[in-house]
Design a protein around this nucleic acid. Structure first.
Length: 241
DNA sequence: GCGACAG
DNA sequence: ATCTTGTCGC
């Protein structure tokens, strides 16, 4: 008898009945299942996910891209649209965006070995930012890559690519403020699930080629916020950009 | 009680 | 996130 880990339905791990206190309680419970020890397979495929909105915010559009881990070349890209079910509430971002993200991921041709998520991992008031939340409910290794801080403080960060500072909250390290490009505002990197703090920073840096954002995030970002929302059928952007 | 607050 | 043209800089 194979012991397949039971994956609960999205409804039980992403409830939203308008009750903020309940959503926070669910986060605290799920935070107990987050693991930040390195436990990811040899990286062959890395996914990037991001969300955008259409029709005055009434429609949530999630984009998921699949890249070859070695070359960082785009292998596949998909989009999913769902009715927006709640407003943005600081600290509850995952309840608003994950339903669409989950649908987009189900549409990918293959499962990734690691997922880059736009937002915080454990660098969250209750330790369950969107990247950690996705990791726990999907079982996949995830890393959170945010453009600004939700919680925590840090010391000065050098101005050169690769320079970093620890992000701390309640006396504990929760993330790395990482300069991904010389003189450019640093990224806020934190483990989502099955990835350590140090590895999260190294993996993100390794995926930052000539832009501020790591390739998986940058490509998902571009797809999620496209005015026309239509993913090109094939090449269009294989060579550069 | 007064701010801060991912996307 | 999104509303939005041009513009400064490598």
């Amino acid at each position: 008898m194979t012991m397949d880990p039971i994956q609960p339905s999205d409804d039980e791990v992403l409830p939203w009945d308008g009750d903020v206190a309940h959503a926070r309680a669910v986060q605290s419970a799920l935070a107990g299942r987050v693991r930040i020890e390195d436990d990811y397979p040899a990286l062959r495929l890395i996914a990037g996910v991001d969300v955008g909105f259409e029709a005055d915010g009434t429609v949530t559009r999630a984009a998921a891209v699949l890249l070859d881990a070695r070359s960082l070349r785009l292998q596949a890209q998909v989009v999913a649209r769902l009715p927006t079910r709640m407003p943005y509430i600081p600290g509850l971002l995952s309840f608003r965006e994950l339903p669409a993200v989950r649908e987009a991921m189900r549409r990918l041709p293959q499962a990734p070995d690691l997922v880059f998520v736009d937002g915080q991992g454990i660098a969250h008031p209750r330790g369950l930012g969107i990247a950690a939340h996705l990791g726990v409910i999907s079982g996949l290794p995830t890393i959170g890559v945010a453009k600004s801080i939700l919680v925590g403080t840090h010391g000065p960060v050098g101005e050169r690519r690769g320079d970093r500072a620890e992000l701390r909250y309640r006396g504990k390290p929760i993330g790395i403020v990482l300069r991904s490009k010389d003189h450019i505002k640093p990224l806020i990197v934190s483990p989502g699930h099955r990835v350590s703090l140090a590895s999260a920073a190294e993996l993100v840096l390794a995926c930052c080629t000539r832009y501020k954002l790591p390739e998986p995030t940058r490509l998902a970002d571009r797809l999620a916020s496209r005015r026309d929302g239509v993913p090109p059928q094939q090449d269009e952007f294989d060579g550069m950009r």
